[in-house]
Nucleic acid binder design. Structure first.
Lengths: 198, 198
DNA sequence: ACAACGATGTTGTTTAGTCAACACTTTCGT
DNA sequence: ACGAAAGTGTTGACTAAACAACATCGTTGT
C-alpha cells in the first residue's frame, strides 16, 4: 500500500537500494521489463515481497523511481560537488540530459515505448529539483521570491527536457552538442531577470 | 546482550553479513584490530550500534565468528559440492587448514598474538562440523552410533588442527604438502573402524 | 589528580520487515 | 475452452532493527 515510510530511517534506505539494485541486475539479465516479476525483484533483493509493496505502489512506480535514481546518479557523476548555477554546469546539465535520452532509446527500444511517460516524468522532476536548488542558492543575493524561483525552475526544466525528448525522437540531424549550445543561449537569456551568468 | 536471534530470519542473515563484511573492510584499511571500534563497524555496516550487540557479545566474539566465516568460505571454495568423505577431499581439507594457518601468521603478526585462542577455536570447530557431516553421511551404511561419529569427529579435528598449529609456529622445515601426506596416513588409519577410504 | 572526552554495554519504546494466508487476476498447456 | 499454475496485491500477528538515553569505564591532557 506504500504507506509513507520514513526516508531517514537507515533500514528504509537500505531496502530501497537493495530493491533498485536487484532491478538493475534483473534488467541486464532478462532484457525485457515485462518478464520481470515482483517476486523476482524481492527474491533477488533478499527482501520479502510484502516489503516491496511497502516501498512501491507496483512495478511501474518502481520503474519510475529507478529511472530517477539512474538519472540522479549520472548527474552526480558529471557535475562537480558542490555544484552551482554557472554557464559551465548548465552546459553539463543539458548535455547529460541529451546523453541520457540517447541511452534510454537504446535500452528501452521499440516495444517498451509505453514507459516513456514514466521516463519523462523522472527526468523532468529531477531537472526541476536541481534547478530549484541552484536558484535558491542565488535567490538571496538578488531579491527573488519563492514563487519566482519555483516558476523559473519549472519553466527551464521543461525548456531543457522538451527539446531533448523531441530531438531523441527525431533523426538527430543536428548534433547533440549543437543542440545544447542553442538551448543554452535561450535558457541563459530566460534566466537574466534572476541572474546574469558569466 | 546477544539474546538468541533466529538465524533463519533473512534480516538476521543480512545484518550479520553486513557486520562481517564491514569488519573485513576495516581490517584491510586500519591494519590493526585494536584501533577498530564497535562504532566503526556498526557505522560501516549501516547498522545501529545496539544492533551489533544483538548479534555479538562484543568485538572479540565477533572476531571469532569472522574467523570461522573466513575459514568456512575458504573450505567452500576448495571442496567440491556436495563433498563426501574420501581420501581426496580429506587431503584438500587438511591442506586448506595448513594454508589458512600460514595466512593467519602473515596477517595477524606478532602483536595480535592474543587472538590465537579465538583463531584456534574457530578452525577446530569448523573442522569438527564438516567432519561430523561427512561421518553422518556414511554412519548409516556401517552400524556406527551417534556417539561414535561425534567422538571420531572430535578426535580427528584435533588430529588435523594440532599439527597444523604446531607446524605454523615452528620453522616449517618440512613442507606443508609433506606434513599433509603424513597426517593423512594416520587419520585414514584412525577412521578404519568406521570406514575404509579408497 | 581530576576533568573532559570517547568508547562500551544496556534498556524501553517505536518502526520496518518477515511471514503465512487470503481473494483475485493472468497466463498457459493440452 | 478449461483447469492448473503462477503472479498480484493486501492483511494481521510476530520479530528484528533503529533510536535515544543512560550508567560505566578507560584514556588523555594539563
Amino acid at each position: 500500500m506504500a504507506t509513507s515510510l520514513n526516508l531517514s530511517d537507515p533500514r528504509v534506505k537500505r531496502t530501497r537500494q537493495l530493491l533498485l539494485q536487484a532491478f538493475t541486475a534483473l534488467l541486464e539479465e532478462k532484457q525485457n521489463f515485462h518478464s520481470i516479476s515482483v517476486q523476482d525483484i524481492a527474491e533477488r533483493a533478499t527482501v520479502n515481497r510484502a516489503t516491496f509493496y511497502a516501498h512501491f505502489e507496483d512495478k511501474y512506480a518502481m520503474l519510475e523511481s529507478w529511472m530517477r535514481d539512474k538519472f540522479h546518479r549520472k548527474l552526480e557523476l558529471q557535475l562537480p560537488t558542490p555544484s552551482a548555477l554557472q554557464t559551465s554546469t548548465l552546459r553539463v546539465l543539458i548535455l547529460t540530459v541529451f546523453d541520457f535520452f540517447a541511452r534510454f532509446r537504446q535500452n528501452f527500444k521499440p516495444a517498451d515505448r509505453q514507459f516513456e511517460p514514466l521516463f519523462e516524468i523522472a527526468v523532468q522532476q529531477e531537472l526541476y529539483d536541481i534547478l530549484l536548488t541552484w536558484l535558491k542558492q542565488v535567490s538571496g543575493k538578488v531579491g527573488a521570491g519563492q514563487e519566482t524561483v519555483e516558476t523559473t525552475s519549472q519553466v527551464i526544466s521543461w525548456a531543457i527536457f522538451g527539446p531533448a525528448a523531441q530531438w531523441s525522437r527525431g533523426e538527430q540531424t543536428v548534433s547533440a552538442e549543437e543542440m545544447v549550445q542553442r538551448i543554452l543561449i535561450v535558457v541563459t537569456a530566460s534566466l537574466s531577470p534572476v541572474i546574469t551568468l558569466t
